[in-house]
């Protein structure tokens, strides 16, 4: 596959401001202007789903650009690459015609178990070699660059020898993949592992960044959790502005996956990005939860009850 790492943004466009396509908003979107510039879908919500969700997706895709964002590629797993999953993903891509396909720098399980979580890798040269080989293979299968997102993490391995931004920089160089910079995940991991989030963002390869994710985390007292269930807090907006300045401006996507608000509120949240770029920051503290049952990478958005 052609190595396109030196080409700015891999030739992929700045789509503007977008939100995640979630079943809660299907009815609204079928009858109203989407307002936002584009949508991101969770690929797994549509892979084996030939019901109403796919019907809605077809309608939306006819009007707005779509990006496919996955959670099950398990790029870092030592299990063999799941070729059945890759085939399904490719078939969905033929149906959706996404502008790009993304997943995470993580693994989801091993020995054919899928925890449905985004688990952290030790950031070593061994991991780098392993992930780079798999990314190259995935890109050959998909016949397009893979866009990889930095995950939020809650533990670090002592034998890691690279910082995450170093790992991503090396990976981009070895594979020509693109980056989905989740500034909320940088913020969450920075707090959890006591690193400087700004330093992280200043040191990733900006030309490889194709997209930015925004979300609202939860302060669980001793750590931050990537809950996607709150408005974006001020420090995440500050990182967003920095990232946009350093990249020269890339597609922006608001993730909101639990306690999902009505569509107009969702749009209002992502639209704040325009004010932020003018230096006007919303005054929003990080949400603090008194409960211990907050979930990272929530799955509420996948749970669509069957209605009679």
């Amino acid at each position: 596959m052609t190595n396109t790492s030196n080409e700015k943004r891999l030739g992929l466009p700045n789509l503007g401001l977008g939100v995640g396509l979630r079943s809660k908003h299907y009815h609204h979107l079928l009858h109203n202007d989407p307002v936002v510039d584009w949508f991101e879908i969770i690929s797994e919500n549509y892979l084996n789903n030939f019901g109403y969700s796919r019907h809605v997706l077809e309608q939306i895709a006819a009007k707005s650009p779509i990006v496919m964002h996955g959670v099950s590629m398990s790029v870092g797993s030592t299990d063999p690459l799941n070729l059945t999953y890759m085939k399904q993903l490719k078939e969905l891509a033929e149906f959706v015609k996404p502008v790009w396909i993304s997943d995470h720098l993580c693994w989801t399980g091993v020995a054919h178990i899928n925890t449905h979580d985004l688990l952290p890798l030790p950031l070593t040269l061994e991991s780098l070699q392993h992930v780079a080989e798999r990314v190259n293979r995935i890109q050959d299968i998909l016949q397009r660059p893979l866009i990889l997102e930095n995950p939020s993490t809650y533990l670090q391995f002592q034998h890691s020898t690279l910082q995450e931004w170093e790992f991503l920089t090396e990976l981009v160089g070895k594979t020509g993949c693109g980056l989905l910079l989740d500034v909320n995940n940088v913020f969450v991991s920075g707090y959890n592992h006591n690193f400087d989030s700004e330093l992280y963002i200043r040191n990733i390869p900006h030309k490889a960044v194709v997209q930015i994710h925004l979300a609202g985390p939860t302060d669980c007292d001793a750590y931050y959790l990537d809950t996607h269930d709150q408005p974006v807090p001020t420090p995440v907006w500050q990182l967003y502005k920095l990232a946009q300045e350093l990249t020269g401006g890339v597609s922006t996507l608001l993730e909101w996956d639990a306690n999902i608000p009505e569509y107009p509120e969702l749009v209002a949240e992502v639209t704040k990005a325009r004010q932020v770029m003018q230096g006007i920051f919303p005054e929003v503290p990080v949400f603090r939860s008194p409960y211990a049952d907050a979930i990272s990478n929530p799955v509420e958005h996948t749970l669509q009850p069957a209605h009679a």
């Binding site: 925890t115 449905h116 979580d117 688990l119 809650y154 533990l155 750590y223 959790l225 211990a292 049952d293 979930i295 990272s296 990478n297 929530p298 799955v299 509420e300 996948t302 749970l303």
Partner: peptide, 14 residues
């Protein structure tokens, strides 16, 4: 434990 707890909560929700 953050990962172990999240695993159960997430799948129970499903």
């Amino acid at each position: 434990g953050i990962y172990a707890r999240g695993y159960v909560l997430r799948l129970m929700e499903c």
